[in-house]
Design a protein around this nucleic acid. Structure first.
Length: 809
DNA sequence: TGCCAGTAAAG
DNA sequence: CTGCCTACTGGCA
């Protein structure tokens, strides 16, 4: 049988993979494909043969044979023994045994996810169209009809069943909470007298609808584990899977883990076999980028979609790197091999600095433009060939600087950290086959490309690293998606935006992962190299703008706020407000710059952006010109500016707000909306004078909000504060509202894990008994009132923040 | 007033 | 796939 099909779902079963296709004619097709899991052993030849024999005798192997693979760190081909495991069920035992091997024997490719390993080695990816050939339910041949990184792709229509709870997810199903299903624009609560009845009702829906996609809210953590337990307890069959054979279903507990210095909670997962279950509330990527974003990352990450949905960006980018490695014949180390090189305290001070910041002048400013580097860190990794194995690589050792010190040699001069001159053109490495030895062309301006600024690390010029090879196609596709979204009308642009957003998160995380001690493809020196180049490039941008007569007001990692006094903003009013604090940014205009029009201003900015791009190799884009922008002072020391709190209005009337209360997730909705309403009003002002003129009406608005709070009668939901439990409840030393609320839930039998959200309303003053201070959601129905004082304080603070620019005129 | 614990933002 | 750095608040000595 020959047909075309869309690879929908796949999972391991016994010793083979099961693949589900949706064919062009709409058929749901289940096929099996024989796939032995293969891992490798490297080390002294004499050791390997006997080891393979021992494994063979244990009956865990299908076969073992000599092979070759490439070492990640050296790029050299090495001999290995390939071991094909008889059935997937033996893998845990094999891994355990491998862990007992002496250090001279290295195990490779032994901890990959089975479905992912299948996709990597076969060169397939999910959610794509294939020409396929099959017989008796066995896959004979599969030929992709499109590219994984294609700009356009099509998705067959998916039968979708919605599943949700009728009340708060913390209320257990069956104990006051109901189950609702949605199908074809209708939603109804399932009526059943008892648990087995509910299971039968749900089973009936699954059977009759036979959905491809079950889209749920809290399905992973709350709904599916419960209904599945009932199904087993009462012997009521529940066809969650399309797979007819028994599929192991274990509901792992959710995990709490750290990411970017903050704790996050990933709930347990409940995937189905042969159809998709997506829990919207338990999927980072669904939340951030919707179904199209998910499909995008499943494709390029070569990971089954249900897994991709529940993965962190870190897992996804790692999967892409693994796929790249397998495609390039690189052996995947089991545990991270390279320790961080020793650094002196002085070196740490100069190197490990992160992003560069220029502090803004406090107060209101006009004629300010913001320029941002696009995907700065990933682009740096791509164009400078930064990868764990390319920083201070052994293959180029002796050709330049040594071991992290900028040692000058006749061949590789140390360059100044300033990039303003034209001595350093950006260089995009040609795609070098990994491992291929390639001599550097003599005309490469290699000095700055191979020596990391400040740190002086060497970068490989023989091999293109795994990370750049992985990033390059993502960067290219994201660029295309962004461009496509821009040229389309909004309603058609949405899928491209979603896909673009999904890629953004992979790119961002890729940088973070370079710095993680335990990341498989991490190396702290590579991380430092990226930030060092980043500082260099931001500095270059600053100097370029200053050389053109601009003042740089503010800078943050990859953004710059610049100003050229004198542009007449054609709305009257002085070019800049007369305020003592700001004379630095608003020096008296000299010469003829008053004749500058807005268009000329933008054109000049674009010109300079293009120039910075030519020098640095990273695209600098004009984010916009502000009608006005306000940089906030520290609350602790009003004379000191803070880098991350500002707000302003662009020429097109749109707002940009950072760091204010309305941006915080622990601000109650009522306060957030109040502040947003004030800001929306302020966005109408084109000049500081107009802004000042808004004062009476803004005061009136603020008064209205206060009044509203005093009168009471606000929906408690509007006053809910959402916070993340930062540690196990028992570890709390202070009775913060968060801890008090979590304890109330604990008392009601609801256990909150670190990283999970806690929601509460302030109920009684801070001095009252601790048990009464807050009321935890979802138990707000009985709430008799709220602490007016606390909420008035919050609203006061929110109002004060946005009223600051009015005091300037 | 200074210090600590707890929490969150922007990049 | 596992602990940036800085700002801010609230409570306590």
């Amino acid at each position: 049988m020959k047909t075309t099909g869309w690879l929908f779902d796949l999972y391991p079963l016994g010793d083979r993979m099961v693949l589900w296709f949706i064919t062009a004619s709409g058929q749901r097709l289940r096929l099996e494909d024989d796939f032995p899991y293969c891992l490798y052993l490297g080390g002294p030849q004499a050791r390997l043969q006997p080891l393979a024999r021992i494994l063979g005798q244990k009956g865990w192997l299908r076969r073992a044979y000599l092979s070759r693979g490439r070492d990640l760190w050296t790029g050299r081909e090495i001999p290995v023994v390939a071991l094909e495991v008889k059935a997937y069920g033996f893998l845990p035992r094999v891994r355990q045994w491998l862990g007992t091997l002496p250090a001279e024997v290295a195990a490779y490719n032994c901890d990959l996810d089975i479905a992912a390993a299948y996709l990597y080695t076969r060169g397939y990816w999910p959610c794509a169209w294939y020409e396929l050939q099959a017989e008796d339910g066995r896959l004979l041949h599969l030929e992709p009809m499109e590219d994984a990184f294609a700009l356009e792709f099509s998705v067959p229509p998916l039968n979708t069943l919605f599943l949700s709870l009728t009340r708060d997810r913390l209320i257990p199903l069956g104990a006051g909470n109901g189950l609702a299903v949605g199908w074809e624009d209708r939603t109804l609560e399932l009526e059943a007298p008892d648990a087995p009845g509910l299971v039968r009702e749900l089973a009936r829906w699954l059977k009759s609808a036979d959905p491809d996609l079950v889209l749920s809210d809290w399905g992973d953590d709350a709904i599916i584990p419960t209904v599945w337990r009932w199904s087993r307890e009462y012997g009521a069959p529940l066809p969650l899977d399309r797979e007819a054979n028994p599929v192991p279903r274990r509901f792992s507990r959710g995990r709490s883990y750290f990411s970017y210095g903050r704790i996050v909670y990933q709930g347990s997962s409940a995937p189905f076999a042969g159809r998709w279950h997506l829990d919207r509330r338990n999927s980072f990527y669904y939340r951030e980028s919707g179904l199209m974003g998910l499909i995008q990352i499943a494709r390029i990450g070569q990971m089954p979609l249900q897994q991709a949905a529940r993965s962190s960006p870190g897992t996804l980018i790692t999967s892409m790197q693994l796929a790249r490695a397998v495609a390039d014949g690189i052996l995947i180390p089991w545990r991270k091999a390279e320790p961080e090189h020793f650094k002196t305290a002085a070196e740490l001070l100069t190197i490990d600095k992160g992003g560069l910041t220029f502090m803004p002048p406090i107060g209101l400013h006009t004629q300010v433009a913001e320029v941002d580097f696009a995907s700065m860190y990933p682009t740096i990794m791509a164009i400078h060939n930064i990868s764990p194995e390319t920083v201070n690589c052994s293959c180029c050792l002796g050709e330049g600087a040594k071991g992290g010190k900028a040692v000058a040699s006749s061949q590789w001069p140390v360059v100044s950290t300033s990039l303003t001159g034209d001595h350093c053109l950006p260089l995009v490495l040609p795609s070098i086959p990994v491992g291929a030895t390639r001599r550097v062309a003599p005309d490469w301006p290699s000095s700055c490309n191979d020596l990391v600024p400040e740190a002086g690390y060497r970068l490989c010029h023989r091999r293109e690293g795994l990370v750049p090879r992985t990033l390059r196609p993502i960067l290219a596709l994201r660029e295309q998606l962004k461009a496509r979204a821009k040229e389309l009308p909004p309603e058609e642009a949405a899928p491209y935006k979603q896909r673009q957003t999904a890629l953004k998160w992979m790119l961002v995380t890729c940088f973070g992962y370079l710095g993680y001690k335990n990341a498989r493809f991490g190396k702290i020196e590579a991380h430092e190299a990226v930030t060092a180049y980043g500082r260099d490039k931001l500095l270059c941008a600053k100097e370029t703008f200053e050389a053109a007569g601009f003042t740089v007001l503010h800078g943050l990692t990859d953004c710059l706020w610049v100003q050229k006094p004198g542009w007449d903003c054609r709305r009257g009013g002085p070019a800049c407000p007369p305020s003592g604090e700001q004379t630095q940014g608003c020096a008296p205009t000299r010469g003829n710059s008053l004749s500058l029009t807005a268009t000329q201003y933008e054109a000049e900015l674009e010109d300079l952006c293009a120039k910075v791009f030519r020098i640095t190799g990273v695209k600098l884009a004009l984010e916009g010109v502000y009608r006005w922008i306000y940089f906030m002072a520290s609350k602790q020391d009003p004379k000191r500016p803070v880098a991350t709190r500002y707000f302003g209005v662009f020429e097109d009337g749109s707002l940009k707000v950072r760091g204010l209360m309305c941006r915080r997730r622990d601000t109650p909705p009522f306060v957030r909306r109040a502040q947003e309403a004030m800001l929306a009003k302020m966005a109408l002002a084109a000049t500081p004078r107009e802004l000042a003129a808004l004062r009476p009406s803004l005061e009136e608005m603020a008064q209205g909000f206060r009044q509203c709070l005093r009168e009471g009668g606000i929906n408690p939901q509007e006053l809910v504060i959402t916070r993340v439990l930062s540690q196990p409840l028992a570890d709390y030393k202070v009775d913060t509202p968060t801890a008090l609320a979590a304890r109330q839930l604990e008392a009601a039998g609801i256990h909150i894990q670190p990283g999970e959200k806690v929601r509460y309303v302030h109920r009684e003053g801070k001095k009252g008994p601790k048990e009464c201070r807050v009321a935890a959601a979802p138990f707000l129905e009985t709430l008799d009132g709220y602490d007016t004082t606390i909420y008035l304080e919050l609203i006061e603070r929110a109002m004060a923040e946005v009223m600051l620019p009015l005091r300037e005129y």
